Amino acid sequence: MLELRNLHVAYESGDVVRGVNLTVNQGEIVGLIGANGAGKSTMMKSISGLVPSRQGQILFHGQDITRTAPDRIPHIGISHVPEGRRVFGDLTVEENLHLGGYRHRNQDLSADFERVYQLFPILRERKKQRAGLMSGGEQQMLALGRALMSRPSFLILDEPSLGLAPLMVQSVFRLIREIHENGVTILLVEQNVELALRHVHRAYIIQSGQVVMQGTPEELRQNGNLMDAYLGAKVRS
């Protein structure tokens, strides 16, 4: 469904992503795991067209989208929930969701709203509340709901557990599983190794902008000492 071929992404300070090859098959949850500064978020922004690549290709369903403008990315079925949620704090929950559905703005969105409200009941209760007054976990749910309003087939999630209390992390990941079960393929960026490996089918370990390991959770856990060397965190078997 998604393929990165020899992807290089650079800022003025130099290359951040260095020759990454990666695939995500339809129906999978695939994880990108790595420490801060490993290049994970930059890679996701490149897929979404927010940061141009210097070299390589990004293919979606076999179509080259490497130079696709960011405002066209939702139209091909990709939604991106960025790190830090990035909701519009001065707008209401309902207005944020409306913005998520802009690609279908000439259509009746009532079924989309109902689908999001069934998945996230708290958003129905808070739909007239300013998003900036919500808790971090509620804002994460809003960011997920806003992404779903575009009816994506492919969802990029960048650090959905960041800054959330443990109980809220469990709730958010339970909802991510439900989104996946409803037919959405997911590319998940996550620093929490154990959390990621409990929810993905396969994972790529990223260090200094490069893939250093890949495999199923079971395969990666068998190389726990090697993962410790790259990630600096003990991985439970």
Rank of each mutant, 00 (worst) to 15 (best):
L2T: 03
N6K: 15
L7K: 01
L7Y: 04
A10R: 13
Y11F: 15
G14Y: 12
D15C: 07
V17R: 00
V17N: 03
R18Q: 14
N21C: 06
Q26K: 14
G27T: 04
V30N: 06
V30K: 08
G31F: 00
I33G: 03
A35P: 06
G39I: 14
S41F: 04
T42F: 03
S46F: 14
G49A: 00
G49Q: 01
L50D: 01
S53W: 11
R54T: 15
I58S: 07
L59S: 13
L59Q: 07
F60V: 04
F60D: 02
H61S: 07
H61T: 03
Q63T: 12
D64N: 11
I65T: 05
R67A: 13
A69Q: 11
R72E: 11
R72Q: 12
I73L: 12
P74F: 08
I76A: 08
G77T: 01
I78M: 04
S79Q: 10
S79V: 10
H80G: 03
H80N: 06
H80A: 03
V81F: 11
G84S: 13
R85E: 05
R85C: 08
R85K: 14
R85W: 03
G89S: 13
T92S: 15
V93W: 14
E95L: 07
E95Y: 03
L99C: 11
Y102R: 05
Q107Y: 07
D108N: 14
D108T: 08
R115W: 02
L119T: 15
L119G: 12
L123C: 11
L123G: 07
E125P: 11
R126N: 06
R126K: 11
Q129G: 07
R130D: 04
A131E: 04
G132Y: 14
S135D: 07
G136L: 00
E138D: 07
E138L: 09
L144Q: 06
G145F: 04
R146W: 10
R146N: 11
A147Q: 12
L148M: 12
M149V: 05
M149T: 04
R151F: 05
F154W: 02
L155P: 00
L155K: 01
L155V: 02
D158T: 05
G163M: 15
G163C: 10
G163K: 15
L167R: 09
M168Y: 05
V169C: 08
V169Q: 05
S171R: 09
F173N: 01
R174H: 12
I176P: 00
R177T: 12
E178F: 06
E178R: 15
H180R: 10
E181V: 11
N182W: 04
N182C: 10
N182M: 10
V184Y: 02
I186Y: 07
N192D: 13
N192L: 09
N192V: 02
V193Q: 02
V193T: 13
E194T: 02
A196Y: 00
L197N: 05
R198K: 13
H199I: 14
H199P: 02
V200R: 01
I205K: 04
I206H: 13
I206F: 09
I206V: 15
M213W: 04
G215C: 03
E218F: 03
E218N: 09
G224H: 00
D228R: 08
A229L: 11
Y230S: 11
Y230R: 02
L231G: 02
A233H: 03
K234A: 10
K234N: 08
K234E: 09
V235F: 00
R236W: 01
R236H: 13
